[in-house]
Design a protein around this nucleic acid. Sequence first.
DNA 1: GCTACTTTGTGCCTGCGTTCACGAGCGGCT
DNA 2: AGCCGCTCGTGAACGCAGGCACAAAGTAGC
Lengths: 278, 278
Amino acid sequence: MTVPPQADPPVGPGSRDAQDVAAAAARARVAAKLAAAGSPGSAVPHPEARSVPEATVARLAVYLRALGDVSATGAETVSSEDLSAAAGVNPAKLRKDLSYIGSNGTRGVGYEVSRLIRQIELVLGLTQRHAVALIGVGNLGHALAGYGGFAGRGFPLRALFDVDPDLVGININGILVEHVERIGEVCAGLDVTIGVIATPGAAAQLVCDRLVAAGVRSILNFAPVVLQVPARVEVRKVDLAVELQILSFHVARRGDDQVDPAPPAARNGPAVPAVVRR
Amino acid sequence: MTVPPQADPPVGPGSRDAQDVAAAAARARVAAKLAAAGSPGSAVPHPEARSVPEATVARLAVYLRALGDVSATGAETVSSEDLSAAAGVNPAKLRKDLSYIGSNGTRGVGYEVSRLIRQIELVLGLTQRHAVALIGVGNLGHALAGYGGFAGRGFPLRALFDVDPDLVGININGILVEHVERIGEVCAGLDVTIGVIATPGAAAQLVCDRLVAAGVRSILNFAPVVLQVPARVEVRKVDLAVELQILSFHVARRGDDQVDPAPPAARNGPAVPAVVRR
DNA sequence: GCTACTTTGTGCCTGCGTTCACGAGCGGCT
DNA sequence: AGCCGCTCGTGAACGCAGGCACAAAGTAGC
Ligand SMILES: NC(=O)c1ccc[n+]([C@@H]2O[C@H](COP(=O)([O-])OP(=O)(O)OC[C@H]3O[C@@H](n4cnc5c(N)ncnc54)[C@H](O)[C@@H]3O)[C@@H](O)[C@H]2O)c1
Ligand SMILES: NC(=O)c1ccc[n+]([C@@H]2O[C@H](COP(=O)([O-])OP(=O)(O)OC[C@H]3O[C@@H](n4cnc5c(N)ncnc54)[C@H](O)[C@@H]3O)[C@@H](O)[C@H]2O)c1
């Protein structure tokens, strides 16, 4: 394993918090109010959903997976209660979420599985494939490149980049690793819309800038750096350290509370109904 | 009646959406006992502030990293403005966040870097090391196991598990891969508090159950499954597919209005981005 | 020692997100 | 055909989070 210059760059000011769902929601929430204030009945041929809250978008993806499971069982319809249980959310929340995308369930029956899947895919923009580029074919990058979940879910990995001369030129899963200098031309040529950054933190901003220059509009960042991007570019960050630290907080919290309340078993027993009961 | 999804155990509801920050916040918001008679001067060993919002906890981890950067520059103090810029948040938000942990900045000066780092580490429970166990040493698991960011940030990886006979028994970074059956005894013996699941989705719930039985209170889940756990266990999910789909949504969203240098209010007229018609 | 300036800490307001509760439609049963 | 029961869709209430703006508190300068 190459031991890269681990460290963190000086970083810069004036950025955005891509991790913060609520803030992103606020940003994304563009006024979508239709002028049609007239009749409540709405005879409009626009069953167009109103703007979808960011929090809902995140859950739609989860619903989609749950729907896949349901579909695998052969069921043709599913109730909000069942589906919400599978997705781990409140039934009312699920129904409201689905209502945002102009959903049509059938009262007394539930949601038609296949129809709902199509609808969510449509809203999430999954009907068109999004070419993905991955930059940084190291430890993590290799794992990601070899992961079938990309293409399997409509996100074909089309380009790989690195600076390491030992890596540039090799093939991974049939994809040639290009030099990072070529991000611009290659991404533009392949019409890459999503970039995944798996380089060390020090290189992330530079790589990000190149991606943006190449017209990439969405970036998934694994490097522990807050990326600075123009407003039109969407960044999502996956930060292992942050996740662990959040978990640590809860361990400490509960640890103080009680170390060993009720260890094993006892799981199924008390049918706690709703999600939270405190 | 619809058939329950195969992947899901009987267990019933009571699942939780670890990804959802806001909801988690509500859940985690437990009234802290300390009435906070806090005198400004000294930090008692119990600086446990009043209950810290979940959203704030997530950002504290980010601040911590930013503080590391600042510290590396040699600065002894940092203003909320500078630090917030480095962390990519609003200065007021940062100050409020820090106020939750009973922070003591100095007015007219800023925050003492080293003190603030210690304070955040204390609140996040990073003063005690958390032994981590990783289950599923496959594609992703290997990358994680080889990653220095674990131990480097106070989360020593102490145990590895898998079912594959070819993997059980090998050493990775000096850690022996144990058979998954031994989760219970090994984790209990090493006092593992955080479990990381990197198995295929089908095995995740089973592994999760074992971890819980072993007394693990926090789980980081990479498998695309909604885990069912008792309320006292905290789960956080990292789901690549979900992240990509969220990005996809935004691509579709923004893709419609093309390059748009200025962010004018002209967006009002052409309605609704939500549903993409193609 | 007093004034002016800097920066924190926070009260208040706004708005999003979640949840409850209930009306509205739909299928099935008698 | 009509009634009954099931489940969706959503209006309204509530609570949390974000952000502005200002008073408090400390520093630096004179
Ligand atoms: N490995 C993990 O499990 C893991 C987990 C969470 C986060 N991360 C983060 O992901 C990133 C990558 O981690 P890793 O373990 O794969 O590191 P790594 O060192 O194994 O791989 C980094 C790769 O990026 C390449 N690279 C360096 N500079 C580059 C540049 N300017 N342009 C293009 N490529 C460049 C290197 O040649 C190397 O191949 C790091 O930021 C790390 O913090 C890793
Ligand atoms: N590889 C990636 O980049 C990536 C990205 C996102 C999510 N994921 C998810 O992470 C998980 C692992 O992905 P992967 O690519 O490493 O898969 P993988 O098949 O390479 O590795 C899975 C490992 O888990 C082991 N395993 C299977 N059943 C087990 C059990 N019951 N107990 C213990 N170990 C068991 C297997 O032996 C194998 O070593 C999957 O759920 C995948 O969806 C992977």
